[in-house]
């Protein structure tokens, strides 16, 4: 249901942009997409020093997007530069998330967390469509390319949504700490008892 709604909304937005030639909707879509991702990554990053960077990067990206749309780009039918930058930013933050997970002494397996599936959803979608978006600005008018665009984009979109769905339907994350902190005391007590019984 989530996949259908998400895909339907995306196609609706692109249809408006294309047929009514309101290309600024692409920009708004890209900004919202990156904004949502950066907001999410801000919540899951554990390094307190880096927490302020997502909002800082978002402001710079927003400024660049406006300048690019109004002053730099001639053909406004597709925004390859900003979507390319967006993909690079998303991939970078995903890699940082993995780096943080590897660095952290955590006994919880990474794939048992919701965040992992959401992050690989973003990573795979951004990686898979990176070249597609780079080519799109110059060759979207080509019929054959448009067919490829639809297929590749749909495949990765679907993959992303499947991964998001896995994250949503996962059971709550298991607690890394025992429920009863007195367990260690009990085990010590049991050790003492077993030792006395042996002797």
């Amino acid at each position: 249901m989530y996949c259908i709604l998400n895909n339907g909304f995306a196609y609706y937005v692109f249809a408006i942009a294309k047929f009514k030639e309101r290309y600024f909707i692409y920009e708004i879509f890209t900004i919202i997409e990156l904004g949502c991702f950066l907001f999410y990554i801000k919540q899951i990053i554990k390094n307190k020093k880096l927490v302020k960077y997502p909002q800082f990067i978002f402001v710079i990206f927003l400024a660049f997007d406006i300048i690019d749309y109004f002053f730099l780009r001639q053909d406004k039918s597709f925004n390859s530069t900003t979507t390319g930058i967006e993909a690079v930013l998303i991939i970078t933050f995903c890699l940082y998330y993995f780096y943080e997970q590897l660095k952290e002494a955590n006994t919880l397996l990474i794939y048992t967390t919701h965040d992992f599936w959401i992050i690989i959803g973003f990573l795979i979608y951004s990686s898979g469509t990176f070249f597609l978006y780079l080519y799109a600005e110059t060759t979207l008018q080509d019929q054959a390319f448009r067919r490829q665009y639809v297929i590749i984009n749909s495949v990765f979109f679907l993959l992303k949504n499947i991964l998001f769905s896995i994250a949503m339907f996962m059971k709550p994350e298991p607690k890394s700490e025992p429920d009863f902190p007195n367990d260690s005391l009990m085990s010590d007590w049991n050790n003492i008892r077993s030792f006395k019984n042996v002797n």
């Binding site: 990573l123 990686s127 898979g128 070249f131 080519y135 054959a144 067919r147 490829q148 297929i151 590749i152």
Partner: peptide, 22 residues
């Protein structure tokens, strides 16, 4: 479809490469 348009090589390998990298 790509071979017909003549642009599919880099796109195909680029996309595949990025996907495999991920």
């Amino acid at each position: 479809s790509g071979n017909a348009a003549g642009i599919s090589g880099p796109l195909f390998f680029g996309t595949l490469g990025m996907f495999l990298m991920a």
